[in-house]
């Protein structure tokens, strides 16, 4: 049996997250170049200020995937961040790279993963996040229930 994402850790599975970004080209096409979406696991976040997060950055040739230092949410190097508990990381990765970021929809809907907006609403709108979120299957303004 191969190494799981949990075994490898968030940062050790960069190739999987790169494939996931590649599979989400159409979703990232909604964003202005330079817009950044982050992914961090609970375990990695607990390492802050020495932690790292996965950052997908929108560009004209599609998204690029890299690791970036994470010292806390106040200075998070992304406009929005998915926070995934360690036990859900494998579920996300196992959904298959072709599912792209869509694999995060289930865990966010069930409340297992969280979606944090770091940039102000105006900046998010200007960068195309309303369309991005809709393409991912979320309502941009969310819900008051």
């Amino acid at each position: 049996m191969g190494q799981t994402v949990t075994d490898a850790g968030l940062c050790g599975a960069l190739q999987r997250w790169r494939e996931m970004g590649e599979a989400s080209r159409e979703v990232f096409a909604a964003l202005e170049p330079g817009a950044r979406v982050g992914l961090i696991s609970q375990a990695e976040m607990n390492q802050a200020p020495g932690a790292r997060m996965v950052v997908w950055q929108a560009g004209p040739e599609g998204p690029t995937t890299a690791l970036a230092p994470f010292a806390g949410f106040a200075d998070a190097p992304a406009d929005m961040v998915f926070l995934v508990p360690d036990e859900a990381l494998d579920e996300v990765a196992a959904a298959g790279p072709d599912k792209g970021l869509g694999a995060l929809e289930g865990p966010v809907r069930s409340g297992d993963a969280m979606l944090f907006y770091i940039a102000p609403k105006g900046d998010l709108l200007d960068a195309g996040y309303e369309e991005f979120m809709e393409r991912l299957g979320f309502g941009f303004l969310g819900a008051c229930r």
Partner: peptide, 20 residues
């Protein structure tokens, strides 16, 4: 104001609200 105050910096899960 473009920001909100709270006990700790926990980002918003709804984009309508301001960064903390």
């Amino acid at each position: 104001l473009g920001y909100c105050i709270q006990p700790s910096v926990v980002p918003q899960t709804l984009p309508h609200f301001r960064p903390p």
